[in-house]
Design a protein around this nucleic acid. Sequence first.
DNA 1: ATGGGGCAATGCGGGTTCTGGTGGTCGAAG
DNA 2: CTTCGACCACCAGAACCCGCATTGCCCCAT
Lengths: 213, 213
Amino acid sequence: MAAALKRGLQAEGFAVDLAHDGEDGLHCARTGEYDVVVLDIMLPKLSGYNVCKRLRAEENWVPILMLSAKDGEYDMADGLDLGADDYLAKPFSYVVLVARLRALLRRGGGRRPAVLRSGDLSLDPARRLVARGETAVELTPREFSLLEFLMRRHDEVVSKTEILEHVWDTYDTDPNVVEVYVGYLRRKIDTPFGRNALQTVRGAGYRLVSDGG
Amino acid sequence: MAAALKRGLQAEGFAVDLAHDGEDGLHCARTGEYDVVVLDIMLPKLSGYNVCKRLRAEENWVPILMLSAKDGEYDMADGLDLGADDYLAKPFSYVVLVARLRALLRRGGGRRPAVLRSGDLSLDPARRLVARGETAVELTPREFSLLEFLMRRHDEVVSKTEILEHVWDTYDTDPNVVEVYVGYLRRKIDTPFGRNALQTVRGAGYRLVSDGG
DNA sequence: ATGGGGCAATGCGGGTTCTGGTGGTCGAAG
DNA sequence: CTTCGACCACCAGAACCCGCATTGCCCCAT
């Protein structure tokens, strides 16, 4: 199907690169300068779901049109939540796909997601607001930046090294700083609400889960 | 009702696209080139209220005719405040709706809102007037320009660097200038009214909120 | 000349960040 | 089950940075 799509789009004048699995696609999207990405969810090695998530976590805002399997393990809401800009369920008509593609190209730039969510925890980068449910939470800059990073990679385990690299922008700092700040965060977003969303994975790092009951 | 409206308008020679919920509508309005949008407030997924707000926030000035539920959680003032160009309360006559539509089309272009609002704070760029509620506020040019920038990005945190870039048109000036002028502004739009709308977000910048009680 | 807007400079107060230490917890091996 | 080592949580203080008010000077307009 991908090959057919490529031929069709090329016939219309698009320049098309085709990646053969998720890893390959992620690699292309990272390096190449594309105007738009068409991303199937069912891919070998790395699902489209994860490709999209990773790209957005890396602040790559290339417009993404997501294609879902019709049985739909993930539905439209999931796709858009992950940071896809548009979504098309299989089976779809070729004409519709091209129309949506043109729409994305016209819009350009890609959409910066307004707020990040994980369970009833929400973080709005633009307004710099954090809330657990309805109650707002005050964070210092460092805490905010740490939580933002964790939320962009929610449900994944992130190592202290990764955190130091992305939040502190250094890689040779004492990892204890991370432990301390994870503690601060827990006291603000978990403890007062009886939650346990910011979990520690011994020997590996930390993980932010949605249902930290 | 939407379907009936569509048939009626098509019979009159309009080309009509019908979206089935707020998200879909927003999507259409973003991509398509429409002459006018008829927007109901009560919509699945994303309220018309929000669709309108989002479009205007994206500098999309397509003319919008808003339809309210008769019980009216939001009333006319709200609708117009959000950037709708006209407003019709249910129940309305079909003839009136078409008349209003033609009026909007005649007017054309969509209306760039004349005045910016944030809570009871208003700023009119054309007349260079600022008021908190009913009482006018006198601002120096620099203060005015700073407030205008903050109001165009109200509720967002804007960094001092951004402010320097857009209000001072330089990026290598001492950020202290911004701090000083934020102070001036506060003394004119907040302090005399016992408000706190111009908030500082330590380590990040400033944020102008509507309910700075 | 004079007043007011615009901007640089200084110092203070308070929050934020980080370090180092201590004690606790987990897991694997004896 | 116990022991041990590694890993992690927590605490408290010190250094630091940030934001703000204030002051004074320059420049342009009146």
